[in-house]
Design a binder for these strands. Sequence first.
DNA 1: TACTTTTACAGAAAAATATTCTGTTTTAAT
DNA 2: ATTAAAACAGAATATTTTTCTGTAAAAGTA
Lengths: 152, 152
Amino acid sequence: MPLDEIDKKILRLLQEDAHYTLKDIANKINLSLTPVHDRVKRLEKDGIIEKYVTLLDKKKLGNNLTVYCQVTLTKQTYDTSEGFNQSILNLPEVVECNYVSGNFDYMLKIIIPDMESYHHFHQKKLSVLPEVSLINTVFVISEVKSTTVLPI
Amino acid sequence: MPLDEIDKKILRLLQEDAHYTLKDIANKINLSLTPVHDRVKRLEKDGIIEKYVTLLDKKKLGNNLTVYCQVTLTKQTYDTSEGFNQSILNLPEVVECNYVSGNFDYMLKIIIPDMESYHHFHQKKLSVLPEVSLINTVFVISEVKSTTVLPI
DNA sequence: TACTTTTACAGAAAAATATTCTGTTTTAAT
DNA sequence: ATTAAAACAGAATATTTTTCTGTAAAAGTA
């Protein structure tokens, strides 16, 4: 179960580019196809590899605004939390939602076309949720870093 | 350049799973291989498709703590910002970094093994940066949603 | 309208890749 | 020592991607 150095090398490569071929990987780490294939399959089976996804250019898709919403609930009960969680899962603009410590309850990340869309989202989709008491918006002015690569 | 409905269907599928074959996609949208292939290549060339990546299970890799750092700089000058940005790019624990509006300057997302590692990161890597004046930490207690899928 | 060009598509052939199979070497366990 | 289990290499097969050829539809031009 613990990852050896070869597993880690494979994972580092696949994190970078899910379209590396087994041959690419085999060459880069000086192995034949077989062990690379077997290891990738094992890493998938064990759930170390969660999935392969395609990342799109959000701006080219017209999503020019990113904001963080700091949300406070009306009550800190289980039912309130669960209700809020379920609603969030159905909002495609919300790409991240975490229950957090501190002066508010949830930190959300929203990706959306522009300020007008955000206004609509804020007024018609988020603040209308019965569990929501307070929303504090933090606007992203400029993206410095955004990666799916985890340190291994 | 504008995306038609077929492009959008392809993008929606590829966002879900970068390992769908052309045949998979062709079947799902009732087309032959050729147009699917041509469209994917065009979407790649136009940069709508940025890259294909592999998502790993952060907890199975031992990263059990996620935190947001709200960072205030010593000065709001260009040089200070640029210096900070460059430092951040070299910190693998920082998976997101955005320059933001509000009571602080930057919102960071950190993925790290545990509180001890965070303590070390905070004291030895972040607060030591000459541009950093203040750090406010928001701890993630529970992850509700995290997706790379953009609404199309 | 008639003609040309371009675009989008289907089907088949070729090339590249993933998967499976066979067997060898190494390592660990008894 | 002997056996069993892992890790690997190489080859065969299956699948997928890429390229090629050709057709139909759409758009542009005279």
